[in-house]
Design a protein around this nucleic acid. Structure first.
Lengths: 207, 207
DNA sequence: TAGATTGTTAATCGATTAACAATC
DNA sequence: TAGATTGTTAATCGATTAACAATC
């Protein structure tokens, strides 16, 4: 690595990581094995791994544990990332309760809401705090990543406040398009995914 | 349309639809307006719309309501799609409670769980039913789309049962890779998204 | 007519993959 | 040595975008 890794490759590395986790400590794994479980072409896998410092052995494959480490290093998963979740509704709670990202160094640094009845309640290992304290919390806890899980109408404002407070990357779960300067935004949207599935359903049957 | 629409375009159409919803009934909208709100290039917008039956007017732009209709037609959002949600944990509940997809013709056809304590409880407009009845429910209610929101260990089995029962498209929210023959699978994964953000954080600062 | 914007072409860019020499 | 698999090249494919004639 040490060079720029193409976006398409970056998007696949977490998938490889997940597939490799299922075989931790099992010695080696060929690009074809990995390709099969990840659902991609084996040449793709080798090409992707060529952007890393990973070393395969011809005729054998890649060392599973070493490869996992190299992918983590390439993705920058080398330290803890506390995350702030804006919104403690159903979705915010599901995200905070879901511990699956802890494995990769992410943790719930804070979960915030405007509703006084929610503030103070426990969710997983966290206690809901007031949205009023967003700026102070982000600064004090050195939070760089924010998740917007508010209702759509408040998403833009929440994103702006997060960025103003120092957050540089945002994952937007609110069903709306938001835009802020100087921060990367990724959108995760159930409706969008369903619509894409609907198109393919039609294409396969209708014609 | 009537022709194949490229994947990259299909993925953007729902975004356009969302942007256009915010301007319903406001007359016309230029490719540049739409591009700005959607966060893409205006040539991209025009190219994408050229795969549809949509008609723009030179010097003026596109009729907002007509364009919305054409995008819906192209995506096949012309009838109701009941969805089955496998798993009534935090995530399944958040998904069932979130009504945002109803606008596009999707509805919760069923939400299932194995836990006897959850079966019978209300979530939004639905009542949790037994996973045992999956096959009967899918067949009887003509469900084509399934959402896997089970714990990771049960995701593969749930997907297989869904497909066996007649589901042809699956949205997988479980943090694992699943694979089934004869069905389209799309994965939505918080960890993956966070890892991509982490990479970009590192790339922007570290260097 | 002047200004604006579409629709489309063609250039460019980036991603995928087959193929194969290198080598364990 | 024989079999397997990497690492990389080069061909191909698909997506993006600048540019501009057509035209409202």
């Amino acid at each position: 690595m040490r060079t720029h890794i193409p976006d398409a490759t970056v998007a696949r590395l977490p998938v490889y990581l997940r597939c490799l986790s299922m075989r931790a400590g099992t010695g080696t794994c060929s690009s074809q094995d990995l390709a099969r479980t990840a659902g991609v072409n084996s040449a793709q896998v080798r090409k992707d791994l060529s952007f890393l410092d990973a070393q395969g052995v011809r005729g054998v494959g890649y060392d599973v544990d070493e490869l996992r480490l190299e992918i983590r290093k390439a993705l920058g998963l080398t330290h803890e990332f506390p995350i702030v979740i804006a919104g403690a509704g159903d979705l915010g709670r599901a995200l905070a309760n879901y511990g699956g990202f802890r494995e990769w160094g992410f943790s719930v640094g804070a979960i915030l809401d405007v509703d006084a009845r929610k503030i103070g309640s426990r969710i997983g290992d966290s206690v809901v705090e007031s949205m009023d304290d967003l700026e102070a919390i982000v600064a004090e806890r050195n939070i760089e990543i924010g998740i917007v899980a508010t209702p759509a109408i408040h998403a833009q404002t929440a994103a702006e406040r997060l960025v103003g407070a120092g957050v540089r990357s945002i994952l937007n779960f609110a069903p709306t398009v938001i835009s802020v300067e100087a921060a990367e935004i990724r959108r995760v949207d159930l409706s969008t995914e369903l619509q894409i599935l609907a198109y393919h359903l039609q294409e396969r049957s209708g014609n």
